[in-house]
Nucleic acid binder design. Structure first.
Lengths: 139, 139
DNA sequence: TCCAATCGTTCGAGTCTCGAAGTATCTTGG
DNA sequence: CCAAGATACTTCGAGACTCGAACGATTGGA
């Protein structure tokens, strides 16, 4: 019985993501972004120490060649820069440029505005986060 | 402030979906399926009246050419059949074959087993479903 | 009847993703 | 110190997915 609930939950989560992507694709296109490039921008927090390519690839659940491809696009648009790590010259950190920080905040605004989750109140959002954090911390 | 929570919630939902896809890709490959074909199989409920291509495309948030492409793959594997609608000969319904029903149940089993949501208890699952249904019924 | 709208398909192009191979660098055991 | 293996990233080539445009078949309304 619980398996049916779980399948329904997976389906619900999937649908929310699909609807979000469908809703944000047009506004992102006006910024010259796709969902792939926008997600890469998303996981670059301006307040943290610039993460290496490997770390970013991990956050995006993609492999190194894929991230190189996406990083090239962001770099071509002047949104990120590859800066060598002084402690390990094999490694390169992805750093947001000024324009990158600005566009990233636009991405966040668009996502927050277009996501189906925008209809939820603060209590529901907090409960949702609490539950999903349990799932994320699991394996 | 609520915008930060909402951004975090969108991020959490995205991560759950990414982790699910990463976890199921290998088992699905053994069935000769990709995430795209598996999702199409997923939305074909054996107990309902076979839906038209247009309806299925809507469920997958994709357009008609894309669904034709995916349906071709499922048909080539003998998992679905296109049957003409007697009332509207332009329309074709996607019907699961016997093998299709069997493989679809395997897909459900894999997803339920591999999803990060599998660590959640019945109460959390029910709460999660309740909240996401609010978001889904919104727009 | 005629014409616009709908359903599905085909075609071509573009984007995304990945495995394999290569380069540069680091690290470890001897 | 140095050679061998491991690591970080890139490039290349192929495959999978998605979409817009154009087309044929069918439907339904003026």
């Amino acid at each position: 019985m619980g398996e049916q609930d779980q399948a329904a939950a997976v389906e619900a989560v999937r649908e929310v993501v699909m609807r979000t992507e469908a809703a944000i694709s047009a506004p992102l296109a006006e910024l010259g972004l796709t969902t792939a490039t926008a997600q890469a921008l998303w996981v670059l927090d301006p307040h943290e120490e610039p993460p290496s390519m490997k770390v970013v690839a991990g956050r995006l659940y993609c492999n190194a060649p894929n991230l190189s491809f996406v990083a090239d696009q962001l770099a071509a648009r002047g949104l990120v820069e590859r800066v060598p790590d002084p402690h390990d010259r094999r490694s390169r950190a992805l750093v947001l440029t000024d324009k990158g920080r600005q566009v990233r905040s636009e991405v966040l605004r668009i996502v927050v505005e277009c996501s189906p989750l925008s209809v939820l109140g603060p209590d529901d959002l907090a409960a949702l986060l609490s539950i999903l954090d349990k799932a994320r911390s699991g394996p």
